[in-house]
Design a protein around this nucleic acid. Structure first.
Lengths: 361, 361
DNA sequence: TTGAAAGCGCTAACAA
DNA sequence: TTGTTAGCGCTTTCAA
């Protein structure tokens, strides 16, 4: 059997309580005693039993995801993953919930944040566009003892605020490289479409995109970013205008996580098969577009990873543990027809009715 | 507080023991009683506490990875991930070890397998080329009660043997698509290099590759597979022969997980910058090649995912649980310069000396 | 077919 | 600064 705290206590010649203090770096132990215990740990090869610790603490973690209300397919994906993760981690004493927040209004978002009480939740994963109000509210929340991580679109780079999501500059650069290579030296313009350029993520993607495109592909010129503002009619109008004004468009980069509107508009205006198109995030829509050839590649961040990484981060913060930042880096996935997994995204749960306990059959 | 088994017992009007029997689907409970307990579960919203269950069981899981002895960079990666995973899961009662096996000889591998005793380990993750002897030995092992999963190169498709790894047919197809698109309509030959074509994975990759290339890129002709057999001199010889005989080679597909030899040989023979090159697996060598432009894209399976997925599978088998196959699918990653994470692969631990306990600083 | 009771390894309140 | 002790929620004998 593996040595336990009891064995460790005996080996170190101290009591269980002291062993516990050393293991958990609690104060009130003489340096000499700490050393003795540490030595004993090495000697008997002690490894603590997490299950036992968790049980004894009987600590519950309550985390809440705050996601924009908009009916975005990618957000829907995230919601499903949150739900799944909650089921999966319930048995480990976690309760992961989800709350909708305003899509745009920083005041409303800040208000929502400020209403959150310490006794409701232990941590928040926030997906909201950058703004001073929101940032301040987040800081206030942290001061109350509620941990906060920023999801995907981060608030201003503050070293003490955790961010979970892909490196958007690199994502934009990836898009540019793919377009540059796929277009095969063709001369022409590249259309860039986003939901809004008010978000940090869009700006960073654009910068990364431009950097690679201008440096490596002089045959291509990126057009100014088009903003749909999530409005279908508007999307169609600006995109068709652009296409009519610039007949030499050879590629399109759909920057925002909601690709439906831009893709639909492009499809109505041109033959997307002849256009090189890169979009973001794997949703039912982009998957379909990938399979049909309407889109050439999708740049994606795995929604499940995003959720689980956020949870791990929050949990680490609650336990005052350091995390392996490198292990929590979200990968920039390049998806084409051939490396699309059959299952991926195909198992979107439509109703959330059946909370399965592991012993259900 | 969340309801416990005690609450559940009270609510169902039975004892703790009976509750436990129902929760764990143990026999010896009247149907009516089972129903009563299940009803109570729903009513009080009971969710079992895994930590408590694990503690009470005080079950240990001992899993062993069997990897070929060869000094392959990818195998080295895997070893590092095994080591890491072991540290990470030790606190949860897992012990994950690693043993070297013969690189090629099926007899030796089978012998090694047959020597494994049920009281040593609970599960094996096996990476070995396909062969009847090995397959039989694996089946024998299963009968003894040692669970087996096949890693990367699987044995013959047996529905009752678990496989962890990418879909190699799709991986080959992905390579073909990338080459086809990157080559931009150029007419010419594609060189295909592998360590050996005796392995199921190489064969499947080749099939997927040919399928896409012949269907979609009539401008390209794939040459017969070259086999290095892990021999540097041989690799150089056959590759330089091929290059000299076919001056119209425009691309190369390095199929095996060990890309060093082929890449070095190609680099000595031609200017790899002008050649479109696709390789497999992210190692120090391929990473370098990607950054320098020597390789255009790397098709990779995440070594950490492979290890963790194997462990989850083995653990599920031990607990007689079903797993979410779709969640355990290994992604076929496409890596180019731009979406290479800075950390990825950069933190290869060189020595495995310091087994860090989580409380170490 | 069911129940009572003794732990599993650790934590935390209290005592010294 | 250190030790004693009563659980945390579940599993597992053993007995009924």
């Amino acid at each position: 059997m593996r040595p336990t705290t009891k064995d460790l206590a005996k080996a170190a010649g101290v009591s269980l309580a002291t062993v516990d203090r050393v293991l958990n770096k609690r104060p009130g132990v003489r340096k000499k005693t700490v050393e003795a215990v540490k030595k004993a740990i090495e000697e008997i090869g002690f490894v603590r039993n997490l299950s036992a610790a968790n049980l004894a603490k009987s600590r519950q973690y309550r985390f809440r995801f705050l996601l924009p209300r908009r009916g975005d397919l990618f957000i829907a994906e995230l919601r499903d993953r949150i739900f799944e993760t909650n089921i999966g981690l319930a048995a480990e004493g976690m309760e992961i919930t989800h709350q909708e927040i305003s899509q745009v209004d920083p005041h409303l978002i800040a208000q929502t944040l400020l209403k959150i009480r310490r006794d409701e939740v232990d941590g928040i994963a926030l997906m909201a566009p950058e703004s001073p109000q929101v940032r301040d509210a987040a800081i206030r929340l942290q001061e109350k003892g509620v941990h906060v991580v920023h999801l995907i679109s981060g608030q201003q780079k503050l070293s003490d605020m955790d961010f979970v999501g892909i490196d958007n500059h690199a994502a934009g650069a990836t898009a540019a490289r793919l377009i540059g290579r796929f277009v095969c030296g063709l001369q022409g313009k590249v259309m860039v479409v986003s939901e809004t350029m008010n978000a940090r993520d869009s700006l960073e993607r654009r910068r990364g995109f431009d950097q690679v495109l201008t440096r490596d592909y002089p045959n291509l010129t990126a057009l100014p970013s088009l903003e749909t503002h999530g409005d279908e009619a508007r999307a169609y109008e600006i995109i068709s205008n652009m296409i009519n004004n610039s007949p030499d468009i050879v590629a399109a980069y759909v920057m925002s996580s909601e690709a439906r509107l831009p893709l639909n508009a492009v499809a109505r205006q041109t033959d997307p098969q002849t256009l090189t198109v890169i979009a973001h995030e794997l949703t039912d829509r982009t998957r379909k577009a990938l399979v049909s050839g309407e889109v050439d590649a999708v740049i994606a961040q795995d929604s499940g990873h995003l959720v689980r990484s956020s949870v791990r981060l929050l949990r680490a913060r609650c336990d005052k543990r350091e995390i392996m930042r490198s292990q929590e880096q979200i990968r920039i996935e390049i998806l084409i027809q051939e490396n699309l997994l059959p299952a991926q995204c195909a198992l979107r749960s439509n109703d959330h009715g059946s909370v399965a306990n592991s012993f259900d059959d």
